[in-house]
Amino acid sequence: MNRASQSRDNGELILRLRGISKQFGAVTALEDIQLDVHAGEVVALVGDNGAGKSTLVKTLAGVHQPTAGAIEYLGKPVTLDTPGKALEMGIATVFQDLSLCENLDVVANLFLGHELNPWRLDEVQMEVRAWTLLQELAARIPSVREPIASLSGGQRQTVAIARSLLLDPQIIMLDEPTAALGVAQTAEVLNLIERVRERGHGVILISHNMEDVRAVADRIVVLRLGRNNGVFTPENTHEELVAAITGATENSVSRRSARKLETQGE
């Protein structure tokens, strides 16, 4: 892909969302969301369950259409009406539910929709590329010629991540990419996020693991009940973040730690 060559200046605005809303019937999943992503930046998207993080990512991936709002990509307004279009423009996604075809093998899944040599599939080259990608992620996959159904949850997640890298995207969105990963593989994914950032690409990372988020994020965007609820940096304290996520300084997390302190004090 030729996008690799057009590396961008760090700090250049790649993606700009203004007033994005998404309605599922009576449910308002997103309301008036603002979000900027710059080249060479890792933006963490955090929020409680059901806050609308996955919905936002799917909107950017072309899976859902926003009910209202505007998306600007590389300075131009765009409509992302199909996943294919988003991919073509250089927006790659690792979905929370992974979205792999269980009946196909690892190679077929990695290259799905982007096979080498469409009229006479180049299986050998695809397999070589598959192994190199997977080794970059320290993947432990016994065979790339077995159907996805035979892989463990973490192995599948690695395949999904590898697939998002295949087209060398401008922006990569990872929806809880490390939820099922082992220690080494999580570290490799964090390394990978940093490598992608160094190459001048943008990363949107969704995670419930605040440690991981603080380790790699440049900015932390909090969503709460489908709305923006503040932008933070890793310098902000844990309490500030939790307060923004839960929407109150007095919340179940603070109560719990207070209780813990009390019992320790006794």
């Binding site: 991936a61 899976v63 199909t82 996943p83 294919g84 991919l87 073509e88 996604t93 979905f95 979205s99 792999l100 075809c101 269980e102 009946n103 196909l104 077929a108 799905l112 929709g113 982007h114 096979e115 469409p118 009229w119 006479r120 599939l121 697939r163």
Partner: peptide, 25 residues
């Protein structure tokens, strides 16, 4: 078995939503 079209056929039959998200029409 040897063309992109065939691969897409199997993908759509296995998981149509995953196929769509992979950019298949």
């Amino acid at each position: 078995t040897r063309t992109q079209w065939g691969r897409s056929m199997f993908a759509v039959g296995g998981n149509a939503e995953a196929a769509r998200r992979a950019g298949i029409n």
